[in-house]
């Protein structure tokens, strides 16, 4: 038990060192997470006024959490293929889980300012309460962990440096646009709704939109969303356990 607590403390402290040193070295890193959601919010505001702002802000919260997860993919790939610091950790008692969690937590901290501000604005525009705040925290932990695990495992399998940037961008695109983050799943045709559950971000998106009072969900959608989260939790754990930490 003590060992696990120490490990958790080390992960949080490592994430803090990684985050704070990056933020000190280049404060612009803290602003990068705002760019895409704000562009989207601005365009939508010009076209539709405040009508969809609540929905978009909830989407922006989730997009930041997703981007923190997928950043683990790029960071793992680049540290393995480009910066070559990966070997330093593989040849040490660092476990894949600790490495992955430290990077994931560091990226969540990096995006936390954006998450916090979008959360405040979303609460203001949707008049949501404590349930929305709790849901955001739980979904942030679950989604960043699951995506971090999967992204880390995929990152360890990259073969060339070019794949790091190309696949990282495609991954973010798929998770934030093809999955119903910025729109309700109910606008999709029924068949496409089912397909969207293939994305790990769909379940969290539906539950978050429901918690903010944006989406009326029936029991089927709730069950599918919870199933989506649980299945990806298992996939994430399997992914981190089968990561290519030691090469064959």
């Amino acid at each position: 038990m003590n060992n696990r607590i120490n490990k958790a403390i080390s992960i949080m402290q490592g994430a803090w060192i990684d985050f704070s040193s990056t933020a000190k070295g280049n404060p612009f890193f803290l602003l990068i997470p705002f760019t895409y959601p704000i562009a989207l919010l601005f365009v939508m505001y010009l076209n539709t006024g405040t009508r969809y702002l609540g929905l978009l802000l909830v989407g922006a919260i989730l997009a930041e959490i997703i981007n923190a997860g997928t950043a683990v993919f790029s960071e793992t790939g680049s540290s393995k293929l480009f910066f070559k610091t990966f070997d330093l950790y593989v040849a040490s008692p660092t476990s894949p889980f600790v490495y992955c969690m430290t990077i994931s937590a560091s990226w969540i901290l990096m995006n936390s300012l954006a998450i916090f501000l979008f959360l405040l604005l979303a609460l203001y525009f949707t008049h949501a309460g404590l349930l929305a705040v709790i849901a955001t925290i739980l979904i942030a932990i679950e989604t960043s962990m699951v995506l971090g695990f999967i992204a880390f495992s995929a990152g360890t399998r990259l073969k060339t440096e070019r794949d790091v940037f190309a696949l990282g961008t495609i991954l973010s695109f798929g998770l934030t646009l093809l999955s119903p983050i910025y729109y309700p799943i109910t606008v999709l045709p029924p068949f496409v709704q089912m397909l969207s559950f293939l994305f790990p971000s769909t379940g969290p998106a539906i539950l978050l939109q429901w918690a903010f009072g944006i989406l009326n969900v029936n029991s089927n959608l709730v069950i599918l969303s919870i199933a989506n989260i649980l299945v990806y939790l298992i996939i994430g754990i399997v992914a981190v356990k089968t990561a290519l930490w030691r090469e064959e």
Partner: peptide
Amino acid sequence: LYLLMRGNVG
């Protein structure tokens, strides 16, 4: 960071 990832604490 290297030491914390190795499992050192504090």
